[in-house]
Design a protein around this nucleic acid. Sequence first.
DNA 1: CGGATGCTACGGCCGCCGCCGAAGCGTCCG
DNA 2: CGGACGCTTCGGCGGCGGCCGTAGCATCCG
Lengths: 226, 226
Amino acid sequence: MSDITRMAAVAALLGDPARARILTALLDGRALTAKELSFAAHVSPQTASGHLARLTGAALLAAEKQGRHRYFRLAAPLVGQMLESIMAVAGPEPPRTGTWRGGEALRTARTCYDHLAGRLGVALADSLQAAGHVALAADGGEVTDSGMIFLRDFGAEPPPGKRVYCRPCLDWSERRPHIAGRLGAALANRCLELGWIARQRDSRAVTITPGGESGFAGRFGIRLDR
Amino acid sequence: MSDITRMAAVAALLGDPARARILTALLDGRALTAKELSFAAHVSPQTASGHLARLTGAALLAAEKQGRHRYFRLAAPLVGQMLESIMAVAGPEPPRTGTWRGGEALRTARTCYDHLAGRLGVALADSLQAAGHVALAADGGEVTDSGMIFLRDFGAEPPPGKRVYCRPCLDWSERRPHIAGRLGAALANRCLELGWIARQRDSRAVTITPGGESGFAGRFGIRLDR
DNA sequence: CGGATGCTACGGCCGCCGCCGAAGCGTCCG
DNA sequence: CGGACGCTTCGGCGGCGGCCGTAGCATCCG
């Protein structure tokens, strides 16, 4: 199979509207379940399942099983860039600022459901691990005793609930884990409460406020190079 | 029609092997006739005609009529970049140096049929025009008296023949014209003869030799920033 | 354990599209 | 002017693939 045949095969996958909707729904780096994607694609779950199988088979998507759900995400940043480049050609409005609306901002810091992702989310996970407050494994995560104290002190004690307490969530743009679960949500909420971060309109990107810059640096030793 | 639908439509165009072959055949910036493209695509001229109509309709290709031929070329550099980005995802060998094999070299200097294109080819055309040796218009080009003298002196007097003497050829990567026709061929041949440029194996890229650096600078005032 | 839920495998229907042969139109050339 | 050539349009054929209904397997929960 030649280069060109392979390229045509990939392009043919992108050429179906349902698959295109699936891929663009994942463009912001979230991982979504098969059912959510079938809704986004406007097709039945069976049809979506077939599409998802082909997309993962071609290594455009990566799948992770979690309980009875299967979460799909873009397999690589290159895939997102490819989609953006096609949109650049297809779009009637060529010159959006930058390569993509808010693309860079999304990569810096964004929400993933209710917790933090992007460079900020990953840095937060790194910091907590380095301090020995949490320990992330492939299939879950644990909070140490010192971590419990730290969280109470920080004001990010997760409320009780049935949802998983702490688990890693692979970050699309960084290819490294950030923290999800009740703990991830509590951390994000506390950062919002403190005014360290602010949501943006019509986007999952979040901005780091001046207060956040010093707060993340002081508490977590995080300094994101701009 | 939404963004996503448009993107899927473009991707679907790229998804057919025949059309993919047509586009990649044009990737180096040449303009080819419908028949040549039908051969490159491994389909009959009728079939290729249909594909070409759809590709130009979607503004992926641009067509120019010339006598009884129609020359097709990529409509914009963005189209080439899109193809490269898809190849980057589709390719089994992910990390080629740079974005594409020899892409940068091709943009610097390459052959287009038998004449020079790329930054070098455009600079050559600019220099000859600035000196009043040639005058390029949209549909053709003329050589002045001083140009005739200059060419004889340089040793690039085109041999007689039926082929058009001098015409502009729109450069893909530069979006500006370089010189084609018997004159373009004679210039390229003379530069090769002088050892100013050298062909590369398995590529239309040409390298500028040290002698060429000083030669192009001295005779034409050309200095290509690396 | 039984029902609900999420996902996948299979089968059949149907429409789209790529393909080529035949034919028509414009251009070049002797 | 007539023939050769390049390109396009039209028509019909055939196959690929998207779609969903049905059914089966795994998981969660009361």
